[in-house]
Design a protein around this nucleic acid. Structure first.
Length: 560
RNA sequence: UGGGGCGUAGCCAAGUGGUAAGGCAACGGGUUUUGAUCCCGUGAUUCGCAGGUUCGAUCCCUGCCGCCCCAGCCA
C-alpha cells in the first residue's frame, strides 16, 4: 500500500548505523508487560520494532517484561503472543522474559554495590518519597546512603535470601539526589516482594525495577536499537548511566517516538478494564474495544492495521488521529478482495403484485462489480421480497433516488419495479409495499435498456436467512476521553445496535473469518464468538462511504 | 516557578538557506445496475508568535507563547 513511505527519523538513524558500519545486523525488541491486552497504540510499536528489523534483515525479540509478579498473568502472555502473531510478525525462537535474566541481573546489582554505586536503603516508601524532593526542590540524601560496601552487600544478600519483609529495604542506585531529572535521584533498583512469580515461582523474593531490568535485558539480548515511547525520554540518562557502570558486552541505544492515540477512544488499561467491569462492553475482545483482540473480532484485517500505522508515521509529535483514517485503511483492505452479497438490515416487505404466485427465478449476480474473475452466484427472486426501510420514503425529497410512491427503482441484479401503493399500520408506519415489475428489464438479459436513477438491494422473503447483525459506533462522545477522569461518563449510548436481518441464501454458509461486503451497507463478518450454523451472528466491520447520509445530515442541520 | 520533549492545512506528515511532497477528511465534476469503487479537479502568499542574521529563513540566532511528560518500592 504505502510502500514508498519516506524514511522516518528512526529508520534514518538505523540506515545510517548500517551505512557507517556501526552495526551489521539490527536487533530490536517488543517488550510488553503481561498485565493487560494489547491495543492500537501497541500496533504502532509492534510494527515499528518488527518492521525495521525485517526491512534490514535483522531480527526482533518478543520479551515479556515480567518484573512485577502479582500484576501479571499467563492469560495476558497467551493473548499477547496470539495478537502479535495475528498481526503478521514472527519472533521465531526469540521469545524471552525479563525473568530469564534474573540471575544475571542480580549479579549486575552486586557488581554495582561492589563499585560503591548502589546501596541498600532502609527508609520506608513514604520517607523515600519525602527525601526525593519535588520538581522544583532538590532531594536529600538518605541517612543510609553512606553505608559501606560490605554492609550493603551483606544486606542485599539477606534481602535476596528472604530475611526481610516486604518494604523493609530497597536497593538504590547512588547517583544524584539533587538532579533536576527525578529519575536520577537514586532510583530504586530492587524491591522485596514475597510473592510467587508466574515463571520463577518462589526462587526469588526480590524483583528488579523496570529501568534496571529493561536496560540490562536489552544489553543481554544484544539489542541495537531500543525503541520506546516518549514518556521514557527522561529515563534515557538512567539507561545510559546503567550501561556506563555495568559495562555489558553490548551497548543498545534507546530512541523514543510518540504514542499513537485514536480520537474518541481510550487506551489506558485501567480505563479499558473499567468498561468491562461496568458491563458496558462484554470483555477485552468486545468488537468496540480498541484492543487488538477487539479489532480482530470486529473483523478488521491485520493488513489494515499495518497500513494504518504506516500511514500515521513515526515522529515525536503527539498524535490524536481521526477514526476516519483507520476506517479508510480497513475499507481499502477489503475493497478489492471482499465478495459482494445482499442483505437487508431493517426489512420492509415488498409484494410484486404482477409476479406469478409460485414462481422463482435465479438471478445471476456478480461477486465483484469491478472484477469478473471473482465469478458470479445465483440469488433467488420471488413475489415477496425484503427491502431496506430506508430505501422507501412517502414524501421523498427531489434528490432521493430510491423508492417512493409511483416511483421506480432497480432491484440490484434483477428487475426494475414501480411502487403502486404502500400499506400503513394504525400508527402510520409503512409496513408493506405493493409494486409491479417490468419483465423486460431483467438484469443482463432484459430487452429493455432503460435506466432508472436508483438501485437498491433486496432479498427474497421465502429464501431469506435470518441473522442477528451487530452495528457498531464509537464508544465515546468526546474526542479525547483519555484525558477524562471518568470516561464512563462520556459513553455513547448507541455504540451497539443489534438488528434482525434478512440475508441472501449464500450467506448461510459463509465461513467464520471471511469478510464480505453487504452491498450499500458495509463490510461484514461472522462473529467468532457468538455465530453458529443454526443462528448466524454478523458484525459490521465498517460502513461504506455514504454520501447520501452526508446530504441528509446537512439537510437536517440546515433545518435547525 | 526545576528538567525533558514537541509546535508545517480539520487530522496525520515530508521537506530544505532559494521560494511549502503525499495520505485521510472536506468540497466540486465525470464514470457507475452499490449515492460504493474508480477517475479528474480544488486548498498553506505560508510553516506557533515576535524580532534578528542573510540578496533570500519554515529551515540559522534570540526572546516569547502553547501543548505533552517526570516527584511508584508500576511499566
Amino acid at each position: 500500500m504505502s510502500d514508498a513511505a519516506p524514511r522516518d527519523f528512526i529508520r534514518q538513524i538505523i540506515h545510517d548505523d548500517l551505512e557507517t558500519g556501526k552495526h551489521d545486523t539490527i536487533v530490536t525488541r517488543f517488550p510488553p508487560e503481561p498485565n493487560g491486552y494489547l491495543h492500537v497504540g501497541h500496533v504502532m510499536s509492534i510494527c515499528l520494532n518488527f518492521g525495521v528489523a525485517a526491512e534490514t534483515g535483522g531480527h526482533t525479540f518478543l520479551r515479556f517484561d515480567d518484573t512485577n509478579p502479582g500484576k501479571e498473568d499467563q492469560e495476558y502472555v497467551n493473548a499477547i503472543e496470539s495478537d502479535v502473531r495475528w498481526l503478521g510478525f514472527d519472533w521465531e525462537d526469540r521469545l524471552t522474559h525479563a525473568s530469564d535474566y534474573f540471575d544475571g541481573l542480580y549479579a549486575a546489582a552486586e557488581k554495582l554495590v561492589e563499585k560503591g554505586l548502589a546501596y541498600v536503603d532502609s527508609l520506608s516508601a513514604e520517607e523515600i518519597r519525602e527525601y526525593r524532593g519535588t520538581l522544583t526542590e532538590p532531594g536529600k540524601d538518605s541517612p543510609y546512603r553512606g553505608r559501606q560496601v560490605e554492609e550493603n552487600l551483606d544486606l542485599l544478600r539477606r534481602m535476596r535470601d528472604g530475611e526481610f519483609g516486604d518494604g523493609e529495604h530497597v536497593l538504590r542506585a547512588k547517583i544524584d539526589m539533587s538532579s533536576p531529572n527525578m529519575n536520577l535521584r537514586d532510583p530504586a533498583l530492587y524491591r522485596i516482594r514475597h510473592i510467587t512469580h508466574q515463571r520463577t515461582g518462589d526462587t526469588w523474593c526480590i524483583y528488579p525495577m523496570y529501568d534496571f531490568a529493561h536496560t540490562l535485558s536489552d544489553a543481554f539480548e544484544a539489542i541495537t536499537h531500543s525503541l520506546c515511547t516518549l514518556e521514557f525520554e527522561d529515563h534515557r540518562p538512567l539507561y545510559d548511566w546503567l550501561l556506563d557502570q555495568v559495562r555489558p558486552a553490548n551497548r543498545p541505544r534507546q530512541i523514543e517516538f510518540s504514542r499513537l492515540n485514536l480520537a474518541y477512544t481510550i487506551t489506558s488499561k485501567r480505563k479499558l478494564g473499567a468498561l468491562i467491569d461496568a458491563g458496558v462492553v462484554s470483555g477485552w475482545d468486545d468488537p468496540r474495544m480498541p484492543t487488538i483482540a477487539g479489532m480482530r473480532r470486529r473483523g478488521y484485517s491485520a493488513a489494515a492495521l499495518r497500513d494504518f500505522v504506516a500511514r500515521a508515521g513515526v515522529t515525536k509529535k503527539d498524535k490524536l488521529i481521526e477514526m476516519g483514517m483507520l476506517e479508510n485503511s480497513v475499507r481499502e483492505s477489503f475493497g478489492d478482495s471482499a465478495e459482494r452479497r445482499m442483505a437487508v438490515l431493517k426489512p420492509l416487505k415488498v409484494v410484486v403484485t404482477n409476479y406469478p404466485e409460485k414462481q422463482i427465478e435465479m438471478m445471476r449476480a456478480m461477486n465483484h462489480p469491478n472484477d469478473a474473475n471473482m465469478g458470479t452466484r445465483e440469488v433467488p427472486f420471488s413475489r415477496e421480497l425484503w427491502i431496506e426501510q430506508d430505501d422507501f420514503m412517502i414524501d421523498a425529497p427531489r434528490k432521493f433516488f430510491r423508492l417512493k410512491p409511483n416511483g421506480e427503482v432497480r432491484l440490484r441484479s434483477a428487475y426494475i419495479i414501480r411502487c403502486d401503493e404502500f400499506v400503513t399500520d394504525s400508527n402510520g408506519t409503512v409496513v408493506e409495499l405493493h409494486c409491479t415489475y417490468d419483465p423486460d428489464t431483467r438484469s443482463g438479459t432484459g430487452s429493455s435498456d432503460r435506466k432508472v436513477k436508483g438501485t437498491i438491494h433486496w432479498v427474497s422473503a421465502e429464501h431469506a436467512v435470518d441473522a442477528e447483525v451487530r452495528l457498531y459506533d464509537r464508544l465515546f462522545t468526546e474526542v479525547n476521553p483519555n484525558t477524562a477522569d471518568d470516561p464512563n461518563s462520556l459513553l455513547n449510548p448507541n455504540s451497539l445496535e443489534s438488528v434482525a436481518a434478512k440475508l441472501e441464501p449464500t450467506l448461510a454458509d459463509l465461513a467464520v473469518g471471511e469478510a464480505v461486503q453487504f452491498e450499500r451497507l458495509g463490510y461484514f463478518s461472522p462473529d467468532v464468538v457468538d455465530d453458529s450454523a443454526s443462528s448466524r451472528v454478523f458484525n459490521r466491520i465498517v460502513t461504506l462511504r455514504d454520501s447520501w447520509a452526508k446530504i441528509e445530515k446537512q439537510a437536517m442541520q440546515g433545518q435547525n
